[in-house]
Design a protein around this nucleic acid. Structure first.
Length: 149
DNA sequence: GCCAACGTTGGC
DNA sequence: GCCAACGTTGGC
């Protein structure tokens, strides 16, 4: 059982969208490191913190769970998608996505500012300068703190 | 809107 | 394989 932080811009896909859909494919990841986390390390049942980025109050807004292992991301084959990748073929897909299921919203979000002020979270990837990775591992201690609000 | 940080691309 | 140029991310 591992734990992850998944970033999403709420204008594109917010925790309320996941709450409505109940589960969804985590499509659109176009970074090799993040992809490798999904294909190599994520397992069904893993916990995920749903983080809103690039918005007025960035932070963790909810909890989800990995509910299906990585499979080819269909958006890479769709010329109409902004995630289309002409280099990908059905034989050799380049991008993959897991599915996640909604668990719950936090009663009160953990804002980025608040996370920065919390010594127990000081080692988190998300707090490092220049961090851009959309999927990062979270320790069990960090998970306990952030997921129980 | 600004800009630092980072990943990717492509010429050599 | 190197590395400069470029595009993107994302907090502020």
């Amino acid at each position: 059982m591992r734990y992850w932080l998944l970033k999403s811009e709420p204008g594109d896909y917010a925790i309320d969208d996941l709450a409505r859909d109940r589960r969804d494919r985590w499509t659109g990841v176009r970074n090799y490191q993040a992809r490798n986390f999904m294909t190599r390390d994520m397992q069904i049942g893993d916990g995920a913190l749903f983080y809103h980025s690039n918005c007025s109050v960035p932070g963790v807004y909810g909890v989800a769970r990995v509910c299906a292992a990585a499979a080819p991301d269909e958006t890479q084959f769709d010329p109409g998608s902004k995630y289309y990748d002409p280099r990908a073929t059905a034989d050799k897909p380049r991008w993959f996505c897991v599915q996640i299921a909604f668990v719950r919203k936090l009663r009160r979000p953990w804002t980025l500012a608040e996370m920065r002020q919390t010594p127990a979270l000081a080692e988190m990837h998300i707090l490092r300068r220049g961090n851009r990775l959309s999927i990062t591992p979270v320790s069990a201690d960090e998970w306990r703190l952030l997921s129980r609000r």
